[in-house]
Amino acid sequence: MNQRAQQHTTNRRDFLLRLLKGGIFIGAACSLSYWLYDAAGPGVVREVKDLVTLPDFSLPSLKGKMSIVTGGDRTEAIRRALDTMGGIETFIKKGDRVLLKVNAAFATPPILSATTNPQLVAEVAHLCYKAGASSVVVTDNPINDPASCFALTGIEEAATSAGAKVLVPKESFFQPTTVSAGVLIQNWPILWEPFQKINKVIGMAPVKDHHRSGASMIMKNWYGLLGGRRNIFHQDINTIITELAMMVKPTLVILDGTTAMMTNGPTGGSLSDLKQTNTMIVSTDQVAADAFGATLLGKTVADLLYIPRAESAGLGTADYEALSPVRVNVS
């Protein structure tokens, strides 16, 4: 009873206090609703990340250079090939930051030649450093489990031992790009992070049979820069390879035809799929390199539709003889 009486005496004050608290909450609720009010609901426009564009890494003064060295020793062959072009110093200057785009697509041992040869990677990285490169980065977005691919192909060990840094792709490495002259690569994620601060790019690929496109060499190897569910581009394989060549303008390409995968490509899986073709092709023209590589597989340019298409897109020449390639034998 006593308490009740007390309550009576403080009633007004209590009520005003409660009114104040209630008012604050009502006010907060109203402002929050006003602030977050959305009359339209989500529209059709999706958030678009800023597009990135790969810069042109080619050296205009060195257009159309090509060297074809025959011999079974990759290290020897690549050295001689580069020597005929004035040494790697022609391409790599002091302080350059070089990216080697290898083919590490499959988690298979190097002896099966489904991936870029690790010795070759080590040698090129070594030569780059010798020419004064400040950093060499090796990367690819493989098809099989990325970590397993770099480990089993021997590329990781070889690159690391040569002082190069291997970048195994992560989700955060990808940024969308658009190839302006293309129709397929539109706002599509590419392996962007490794290209940060890079000013020279060397494409390195083995010569391989490829059922859908006819052959997988330098231009097809840029496929490994695509992210997302890139396999849908197999519906139009010649266009995507041409667009990839539009997307990447490398400083130099090294097409390793020492051992060519003649059958069961591009995975291979057996030594019987391979043939010693003992040829190393180094060029600043990726179309010419692939055009010559086709001959190692017993194919012609007409068999590989993406080559003439790349040529007509002005990406290089399919008539490699027109470049008067230097031919050397080191065996």
Partner: peptide, 16 residues
């Protein structure tokens, strides 16, 4: 009616 054969390409055994 769309070309593809991604499965064939990635089949790791030899012969595929």
């Amino acid at each position: 009616d769309r070309p593809c054969i991604v499965c064939e390409e990635n089949c790791p055994v030899s012969p595929k």
